[in-house]
């Protein structure tokens, strides 16, 4: 039996803005174990991004409980949340969010800047990961010299650099052509095969089917939660598996 990573109970979230209260999440229960590959699906406005932000310690929940690795994290303060992001989480964004004037290597090292790891070790670790995503020949490049697919691979290396317990990927293929998209999915699937927990947010069914499990969110509630039966497998070269 695999160990529990994320356990949320009756999670609610509302935004208060100049006397207007917007309720986004209406009571979500969700358990995710270590080693899972979960795709969170839902149309825009469904609350999936908010859920992701809360799970990724970017946002606070309004009511309910959130246990991460059996630790109650519902009431953490801003700095403690930052600490969790720094130690436990890796993010991959739709628009890559690389620093355009920094080199590939510097970009990957960025999260470690907020840890106490010595510089030499940071360089070593970042270089290893860039090698892993096949960009060892691009260490000194700035992102504007890279293709979209390469950029997202840099972002994946960055997400992994702090050895996170879970990687969040928010529409990671959204800005990519289908071939690069599949390359990215291949890397994510390989990572998951190696034991990494991955939570993917997407609105595309096809992309979601690369995961092991799909959680559908609609109007702030979980609509469906099921295992993927006919899972899609991306190949190294970005071709579809037959």
């Amino acid at each position: 039996m695999s160990t529990s990573l994320i356990r949320i109970n009756d999670l609610k979230k509302q935004f208060e803005n100049e006397e207007v209260i917007t309720k986004v999440l209406h009571g979500i229960d969700l358990n995710i174990d270590q080693g899972e590959f979960v795709a969170v699906m839902g149309p825009s406005g469904s609350g999936k991004s908010t859920l992701m932000n809360i799970l990724g310690f970017l946002d606070k929940l309004s009511t309910g409980t959130y246990q991460f690795e059996n630790q109650d994290v519902s009431k953490l303060e801003d700095d403690e949340l930052a600490e969790m992001r720094s130690k436990k989480i890796g993010f991959i964004f739709q628009s890559f969010n690389l620093l355009n004037r920094s080199t590939t290597l510097e970009n990957v090292m960025l999260p470690l800047f907020y840890t106490d790891m010595p510089k030499k070790e940071r360089v070593k670790r970042a270089t290893e990961l860039l090698t892993k995503v096949g960009l060892e020949h691009r260490l000194d490049y700035t992102p504007n010299k890279l293709s979209g697919g390469e950029k997202q691979r840099v972002a994946i290396a960055r997400a992994l650099v702090n050895k996170p317990d879970v990687v969040f990927a928010d529409e990671p293929t959204g800005n990519l052509d289908s071939k690069s998209g599949l390359q990215v999915m291949k890397i994510l699937q390989d990572l998951n095969e190696d034991g990494n927990t991955i939570i993917l947010v997407t609105h595309e069914r096809y992309t979601a089917e690369h995961a092991k499990r799909i959680v559908k969110v609609r109007d702030g509630l979980i609509e469906e939660d099921y295992r993927v039966e006919k899972r899609q497998w991306a190949k190294q070269n970005g071709e579809l598996a037959k």
Binding site: G56, D78, D79, A82, E83, R85, K87, N97, P111, Y114
Partner: peptide, 16 residues
Amino acid sequence: TREIGLRKAVGAKSRD
């Protein structure tokens, strides 16, 4: 702004 957002997302505290 985006850089700041990113730095925060990867673990920078406000005082950083």
